[in-house]
Design a protein around this nucleic acid. Structure first.
Lengths: 355, 355
DNA sequence: CTGTTAGCGCGTTCAC
DNA sequence: GTGAACGCGCTAACAG
């Protein structure tokens, strides 16, 4: 399809073409660079006619504005940073989308990073992000290293922590209590008559939301006088569907009379349900299983999965909106907490009547 | 937890703290700014002792390097741009992770954007990205607007197109033929004795990979003499689990004797299978269903789903590696094609013997 | 509405 | 191994 003998030349030529500067566009049009600069901004005062001539020249020459240079002199990077634990198979990809959508047409560019549920990696990413001088930053959770906190403090930019309610918030918070959400689910199921509760979650403390859900579970089971909850920790967060399946097997081996199993996420719940079915058990007749997060899969699968619906997209969107307010308000930000909703969604997987 | 009466003052103070410049660090240590600059780079020649003193000062003062300023003078932005159709519930999030991982410790920062399967949005994003002067760019697919092509050409940076084999590649390609992959699946199922083939995909031509899969399906069914394929187009790509369920209903209403249904992705296949089960049909005994992409769900669900395994993560990783080669090789790039593997994974959902 | 001057905070390039 | 001058490409601030 292409001549193989001079791709390099072609490339070099193209590279030269790019070296267009605003001043050159200005000369071409017969105005000053400043006027070209103004033509690119909405509010600036440039006559419609010159702007039109400039934009035609920009088009003809193929000039592309250089924001790095601009941000250096305007002292506004135009970046917003956001760190999420993971962007795969998780609720956080919806949050990332909420952020991206809220940033659309604001002229702000998102710098997205994923921490892999590690506070150390978060610290490294925060530093990398701060080197780009973001105007604000969105974090997941409230667990940060001391150095990370210090860097954020020094940076003097608005910070939004999401997805949980930290004990010591940095600035603004957009999230909900994972513990209370799980508690609500336990109570809903206890109301349905379930008594012997099991729980499946990941092993380490890296996933603070997971830990909070577990402690909400344990606390509530205790409060309801339903004896100690039966907890199986299996796999490094985020635990997979497959690990959910393995965990439910362990759980049932250890406590065969468990009536209902709550899982740290819908994915592990799905894995657990499928594993039970493979083993010839009927969910929910023989065993009831519930998840957390209301992933798409939970309403579709058979049996459909009881879960907690969480406003993943809204968390991202609202976090971005709060951040935008602060950024446009001069970088200051009230240290408020925006609570996002959640609700129990009862479905077939915990409906004793059968599927 | 905090004093509510002077958060603003606190913020302003913090903001001031950030205004640290390299020169100030230099003064503090008693060296020149240039020496501080060198201390931050690996290769630079600074005595170990001064570097140590500088780094201690950096730590003590909380100085954070400003890369935007640096990139302006070094004429290297340190950015790589990547555009994917979606980051939710899709194979592309794995690709994004592959890119991110490959970029780790290279000092390059990823600018990620999602096009929502729209060439127009892609064009806008390409322009937005180019304003940050990325050193290379990774795109999904080979379908771009003319203006997008022109901008990329002018930019003179290496481009990697992924996930398919464009008819007219820009530079490098990392992907596979979606048409041939689907063809392989058709043949594998025909080998198993299936004859009456149906297909479920999205409606518009926006999703070029989807279109290629469909044409691969149609072509192969034809070649095998298995009459015209029965195609249902339903929903705007990416089609959801629920839409997969609705589509299979339409398909079976129209062609009740269909033996096997191929879906554009595992997600729609999963939705189709669940819908069939809800309607009391036995998959695969009454109807066989296959997907594309080998999502986690396909190996876990019951019945497990026959599909095409694609190296999503590897596509991203290899694309990034190719780009890094080009970037370090001075911005030029051979216009080669890196084929990534795929394979048919036969599972329960097309196993006539029963589940 | 438009132009001029100055400088954003670094790295390049050269000198020592 | 270290420092000084200069400029990257743009925009703030002011002048007209």
């Amino acid at each position: 399809m292409k001549n193989e003998d001079e791709p390099k030349d072609k490339r070099v030529k193209a590279a030269d073409a790019q070296k267009l500067t605003m001043a050159e566009v200005a000369k071409y049009v017969g105005v000053s660079a400043m006027t070209v600069s103004r033509a690119f901004r909405q509010d600036a005062s440039v006559s419609e006619e010159t702007r039109k001539r400039i934009m035609e020249a920009v088009d003809a020459l193929g000039y592309v504005l250089d924001l790095s240079a601009g941000s250096l002199s305007s002292r506004r990077s135009g970046f917003i940073a956001a760190l999420v634990p993971s962007i795969n198979n998780s609720n956080f990809s919806d949050t990332a989308r909420g952020i991206t959508d809220a940033l659309e047409n604001t002229g702000l560019q998102l710098l997205l990073g994923y921490t892999d549920y590690s506070a150390e990696k978060e610290e490294r990413l925060i530093e990398a992000m701060l080197r780009r001088r973001p105007e604000g930053i969105i974090l997941t959770g409230g667990s940060h290293t001391d150095r990370a906190r210090r860097m954020l403090d020094k940076a003097g930019i608005p910070v939004v922590e999401t997805w949980e309610i930290p004990e010591e918030p940095i600035n603004h918070v957009v999230g909900f209590s994972n513990s209370e959400a799980m508690s609500l689910l336990v109570r809903a199921l206890a109301n349905q008559g379930y008594r012997r509760f099991g729980y499946i979650g990941g092993t380490t403390a890296r996933d603070t939301r997971g830990s909070q859900r577990r402690s909400g579970f344990l606390k509530t089971v205790e409060e309801l006088g339903l004896g100690p909850g039966r907890v199986i920790s299996f796999g490094v967060p985020p635990i997979t569907m497959e690990q959910g399946g393995q965990a439910v097997v362990s759980l049932l081996e250890r406590w065969p009379d468990t009536e209902v199993v709550l899982c740290v996420s819908d994915l592990s719940a799905f894995g657990a349900i499928m594993e039970c079915k493979r083993r010839g058990m009927n969910v929910p007749v023989d065993i009831a299983i519930a998840g957390f997060g209301d992933y798409e899969i939970s309403s579709i699968c058979h049996p459909s999965i009881t879960t907690i619906n969480v406003d993943c997209y809204g968390i991202g969107q609202q976090a971005a909106v709060r951040l935008l307010d602060a950024v446009h308000g001069g970088g200051s930000m009230g240290d408020e907490i925006t609570l996002t909703g959640y609700k129990v969604v009862l479905r077939e997987s915990t409906n004793r009547g059968g599927t």
